[in-house]
Amino acid sequence: MKRSPPELDYAIRGTKSPLPQRGQVVSNRARKSLNRLSVHLGLLLCCLGFGLPFAWMLSTSLKTLDAVSPTDGAASHSIQFIPDPVVWQNYANVVTNEKLDFPLYTRNTLIIAVLAVIGNTLSSAVVAYGFAKIKFKGRGVLFSIMLATMMIPFPVVMVSIFTLFRFIGDYTPLQMLGTFRPLWLPAWFGSAFSIFLLRQFFLTLPDDLSEAARIDGCSELGIFVRVMLPLARPALAVVALFTFMGVWNDFLGPLVYLQRPEQYTLALGLQVFQSAHGGTQWNMLMAASVLVIVPVILLFFLTQRTFIQGIATTGMKG
């Protein structure tokens, strides 16, 4: 289904109201504002619930160890949102902590993310173009197969992909297990979801564009690179963003493929740090969590506009 950008812009950000004001059956004004008030109240309550974990996490991340795990054994403590004293040092400690090598894990995650983002965006675009703009025999069947693969749960292929990587490592000079390769290499073959998104986008581009280029003697690859890719920028940005978030989030992948602590990603490192220390230094753990969350949220705010435009033009929703 296609939609125009302003509409979805509204769907996410509500910047403008497309609801027609005219032609409404006018009912009681007072009842209307009462309705509005109850919606406000309901939303306020929900937002309080949704925002609370963030607030508590931030607050904890700035507390002293004694404030989060008191040794006095007192039965209960009152809830304290504003830390006293405020310990910014926690963040510095997380970054320099020797048990949770934050800079190294960030570097590892970024290496994987960059390689996966480039690979997935490029190859998904190529494939999506093929599915959208080249009419060839078997296209429909292949496309349906691709959509069906989205339903295969990762656990089903987890074991055999693992053995496959081991096989490649054993019989070719290309070591797989215990390297980052299993985590980014598959991305270079596109992913069904990204291909689907980009195909939807390419479908919205008029065929005359490529026809004109074709008449000018442009090759198919030339059309793709020179005409289509520049137009697809917002859609590509969405795919890149989704891929980045996928890598940043991924837990099971690194858990299965990474073997040495010096290769851990942030997600895995954080979990290992937590489980290795039984009860926990909650202030440090919350500071670490904040540091893991912030890049994703920042990225979202920075790219919000492109993001919404991209989602809108790719017609992603149902």
Binding site: I12, C46, C47, F50, P53, F54, W56, M57, M245, W248, N249, F251, L266, A267, L268, L270, Q271, Q274, L285, M286, A288, S289, V292, I293, V296, I297, F300
Partner: peptide, 15 residues
């Protein structure tokens, strides 16, 4: 309402 769905699963587990 949307922000929590951006939080990496490990971090939300910790919180």
């Amino acid at each position: 309402i949307f922000l929590p769905s951006l939080v990496p699963v490990v971090a939300s587990a910790m919180v």
